[in-house]
Simulated scan of single mutants.
Amino acid sequence: MIGFVTLTGIVARNGILKISHALNLSLTEGLALSPALVLRASEERLVPVLMTALSAGIALVPLLFDGEAPGKEILHPVAVTIFGGLASATLLDAVLTPVLLLRFGGPAFASLRESQAGEAAGAPALL
């Protein structure tokens, strides 16, 4: 269970990174939600996501081998769960998050644009 909780936190962080970057690109550059925007956001956040998975995976390597060694009886299954989950979830996240963002992100992007336009209209003029 500890491995799954850890894995869930890492994978959720990676998905949030991609979605928040797509929202940021949309707001700062005035881009509409489109496949080009989602691909750009995913591509620009690919390195941080891979670095997170790689650093966690490298840290788990000593626990993956010789699971019968004294002191590793409990940590070995946790390491296997996290390592395997990181490998599969990172690949799945690279495909699934952009698809879900394109499919279900339209209303969120529209309301964000409306709120930004409302704030811009109500902002006092600078002298």
Rank of each mutant, 00 (worst) to 15 (best):
M1V: 11
I2Y: 13
I2H: 11
V5D: 10
V5K: 09
L7I: 12
T8M: 14
T8A: 15
I10V: 11
I10W: 00
V11K: 01
V11R: 01
V11E: 04
A12P: 02
R13S: 14
N14E: 11
N14L: 07
I16M: 09
K18D: 07
S20C: 09
H21V: 08
A22K: 02
L23T: 04
L23M: 13
N24G: 10
S26A: 13
L27S: 00
L31Q: 11
L31N: 07
L31S: 06
A32G: 13
S34D: 08
S34I: 01
P35T: 08
L37C: 03
L37I: 07
V38H: 00
V38T: 05
L39N: 15
L39I: 10
L39H: 13
R40E: 10
A41Y: 01
A41T: 04
S42P: 04
E43R: 15
E43G: 14
E44P: 03
E44S: 12
E44A: 08
L46F: 15
V47A: 15
P48L: 09
P48D: 09
P48T: 10
L50C: 08
M51I: 15
M51R: 14
T52H: 07
A53L: 06
A53P: 01
L54T: 15
S55V: 15
A56F: 11
A56C: 13
A56H: 06
I58H: 10
I58K: 12
L64K: 04
L64A: 04
F65D: 08
F65V: 15
A69P: 05
K72P: 09
K72T: 11
L75F: 12
P77Y: 07
P77D: 10
V78A: 12
V78K: 01
A79R: 01
A79E: 04
A79K: 06
V80L: 14
V80R: 10
V80I: 15
V80S: 11
I82Q: 02
G85T: 07
A87P: 09
T90N: 03
L92F: 14
D93V: 11
A94G: 07
A94K: 05
A94S: 10
V95D: 04
T97F: 09
P98E: 09
P98S: 08
L101P: 00
L101M: 07
L101F: 06
L102G: 06
F104I: 15
F104H: 14
G105D: 02
G105E: 04
G105H: 05
P107H: 07
P107N: 10
P107F: 08
A108C: 06
A110M: 02
A110W: 08
S111M: 06
L112W: 00
E114V: 00
E114P: 01
E114T: 01
S115W: 00
E119H: 01
E119R: 01
E119Y: 03
E119I: 00
A120R: 01
A120D: 00
A121V: 01
P124L: 05
P124I: 00
L126D: 06
L126W: 06
L127H: 10
L127V: 09
